[in-house]
């Protein structure tokens, strides 16, 4: 490796990397500077924490923040909890395992909005589920499940859509565990639980964390599922940001920027915390 080659490599990287760095720093920079009063669309640019004070003092904002944090955590954990056993089950191919893994991956091909529509259609008052429940005699009258207050619908959709990603990430690392290690453990008399705790979990920790982080970020920034299937009594952060921008005239930009910065913070720290706790849990189990 010479300096010359490094220079050449960086030159080659430029066309791909420059747009990413420029775009992202401009966008994030725009959000941060608008949140503190620069690039104003109304009035002069001036440093001000007015928008921060305005947003952080709103109950609605904190409800949205906690709501997004909660759905993101739940979605990430549930997706991984569901994907993990399936990945273990499909570790070694057997007749029919290809079919199953194709079925698991199918939701990747379905657009989020389409999924939300299919779901709402399925659970609506006159939808299939209600018609079935009533006709089978489980309930006397249809149940109202659309836009439920506890966001069960949103979490179901998140898990439905993100479980395949978790599966893809985890299955690779599960397959990479050598049979020899597992056989050796079995030879030493380790039961399946011990093998899971002592060998499989620690060896797949990285992919577990990757899946959790990815799903947490996607779910924390969710707009479409929330808009179509979410509760009407609370906004997700992304929805709150869009609404803040739209409803408050020229000041809306600055206040939306505050929400954006908080959402980025949630994505970053929230996903790190979830990943960190997983690491801790796995370490503890190993003992």
């Amino acid at each position: 490796m010479t300096n010359n080659q490094t220079l050449k490599a960086y030159l080659l990287l430029l066309p791909g990397l420059l747009p990413i760095i420029a775009f992202m720093s401009l966008v994030v920079g725009m959000a941060v500077s608008q949140s503190i009063g620069f690039f104003n669309f109304s009035g002069a640019d001036q440093f001000s924490i007015q928008s921060w004070r305005e947003i952080l003092s709103q109950d609605q904002f904190w409800r949205a923040f906690l709501y997004s944090a909660r759905t993101a955590t739940l979605s990430a954990i549930l997706s991984v909890l569901l994907a993990y056993p399936i990945a273990l089950w499909l570790r070694r191919p057997f007749p029919g395992s290809d079919l199953i893994s194709a079925m698991i991956k199918a939701p990747i091909l379905v657009h989020g909005l389409v999924a939300a529509f299919l779901f709402v259609n399925f659970i609506s008052f006159q939808g299939f589920l209600n018609v079935a429940l009533v006709n089978l005699g489980f309930t006397a009258s249809p149940m109202r499940m659309q836009n439920d207050t506890y966001a069960i619908g949103v979490v179901i959709l998140q898990v439905w859509k993100n479980m395949p990603f978790a599966f893809l990430i985890i299955v690779g690392s599960v397959r990479a565990i050598g049979d020899d290690i597992l056989d050796a453990a079995r030879g030493l008399g380790a039961g399946w639980l011990a093998r899971l705790r002592r060998i499989i979990l620690p060896l797949t920790l990285r992919s577990l964390q990757a899946a959790l982080v990815l799903i947490f970020i996607v779910a924390a920034g969710d707009y479409s599922f929330q808009a179509v299937a979410g509760p009407t009594s609370v906004n997700s952060l992304a929805q709150f940001m869009v609404r803040t921008q739209a409803d408050n005239g020229a000041n809306g930009w600055n206040e939306a920027a505050v929400v954006a910065v908080m959402l980025m913070g949630l994505s970053l720290f929230g996903s790190l915390i979830v990943a960190g706790l997983t690491q801790l849990a796995v370490r503890r189990m190993r003992r």
Binding site: S124, F125, Q126, R144, N147, V228, T232
Partner: peptide, 18 residues
């Protein structure tokens, strides 16, 4: 009362008998 998602959502759900 129930909060719906839009004008059209209210109408659809009235039509559905909800």
């Amino acid at each position: 009362y129930i909060i719906t998602a839009s004008n059209a959502d209210s109408v659809t759900r009235l039509n559905d008998g909800e």
